[in-house]
Design a protein around this nucleic acid. Structure first.
Lengths: 215, 215
DNA sequence: GCCTACATGTAAATAGTTACATGATTGA
DNA sequence: TCAATCATGTAACTATTTACATGTAGGC
């Protein structure tokens, strides 16, 4: 999940570790408090895998800073990310994963977006049902705090379902919510297409045209 | 966190593992999908530590079931739990921990309850501030999905702050006496409120916290 | 002189999951 | 016969945090 998020963020342009962390925790809100103890090893693993490349530490660092190492996505990394995006399965429907996926929806094909949104919705509805059953079963034995928590959790889930409903509707209309600017095209690819990958024998859906609805 | 939750649940009476898991996932909503792979080892560790005791597997299991092992809190376990409750520190302010703590508020002293509620609130407010700053900084580079996620996350946090505000107010009114014995069958629920949520997301309507000062 | 923000890293520990294995009973 | 629900458990793995270590530079 962390690697996915790093690749997704790096899609918008090169960044160094420290800044990457800030974006993941503050801007996107995913990863409440990501530690360097997980970030830096992850970055090195991605470099080793060839998904990202690292610049040598800056020879003359800016005033008040230490030399930084800037990471950027390779063509291979871009491919890899797209592969991960398409893999979206049941694991994607729960809390943390879903947020991360949604954060990079602009780089996700419409059909996958819809699958994720609907998967998330039914997951939430399932949970709501379970909660209500359980609540009924033990309603006499519940103190006011448990009850308050339960109701808040239910309320939150209901709200998210309604929100998802809106997103799904917008998606089906082929439009984007909030009348915001459409997802911009990806940054230029400096490398030509890689020749072949071992798993390319798997036939992908041919009708998946990368359609960006431009208003 | 898991051990804390087990001890907390067992406070209400003995349970066997399978049922314990159901309560932790469905009823309390904490632990999205707790696996037996963590539950059973945790139970054994608690037994080894003397915090809970296990009955021998039932000689004659009920129809359609396998022999069960029932666990119950020991006096020592009760003490230990109270110790953990009082330890509530900054780690308690974030998402998962907070829910678990709140779930066992009925067994928590008033002053600790207030500390947790206020800690959680300021944590959320801090997060909101970070998010808004970050959003401002990169608002031109944000696609509609990122924006939608951000707004939903903000909205959720704001709502939780308001909810906490209510809980804190109720707490300050002295709704629950300090160091009181656990309200075993306490908190007569006024109304389960079936599905009476407003259909439109009306931000002006504050969600009523169900901390009824049952006295 | 110390604290904060910037910047990168490692080793050990922790908390949990996944996949597996067993086994009884009920109902389609 | 097959799936589902109930019920307990183990071993291997994964992801992530914590605590530590190093270093620069500006402001109080």
């Amino acid at each position: 999940m962390l690697e996915f998020a790093i690749l997704g963020l790096l899609h918008d342009g090169p960044l160094h570790g420290y800044e990457l962390r800030k974006q993941l925790t503050n801007a996107l809100g995913i990863f409440r408090a990501l530690s360097y103890g997980s970030l830096y090893p992850a970055l090195r693993a991605l470099v080793a895998a060839g998904h990202i490349s690292a610049t040598a530490p800056e020879p003359q660092p800016l005033a008040g800073t230490r030399a930084r190492i800037t990471y950027q996505l390779t063509a291979q990394g871009k491919e890899h990310f797209q592969g991960l995006v398409r893999e979206a399965g049941p694991a994607t429907w729960d809390d943390d994963d879903f947020d991360v996926r949604l954060a990079f929806f602009a780089r996700t094909e419409a059909q996958v977006r819809l699958r994720i949104l609907e998967g998330r919705r039914s997951r939430l509805e399932e949970r709501l049902e379970h909660m209500r059953e359980a609540a009924l079963a033990r309603r006499e034995r519940m103190d006011s705090y448990t009850l308050a928590l339960q109701q808040h959790t239910e309320d939150r889930a209901e709200r998210e379902v309604r929100w998802l409903e809106e997103l799904i509707t917008a998606e089906r209309r082929g439009a984007h919510p909030s009348g915001s600017p459409p997802p911009r095209e990806a940054a230029r690819t400096t490398q030509p297409r890689p020749a072949a990958y071992p798993t390319s024998s798997d036939p992908t859906h041919p009708q998946t045209a990368h359609i960006e609805t431009k208003e």
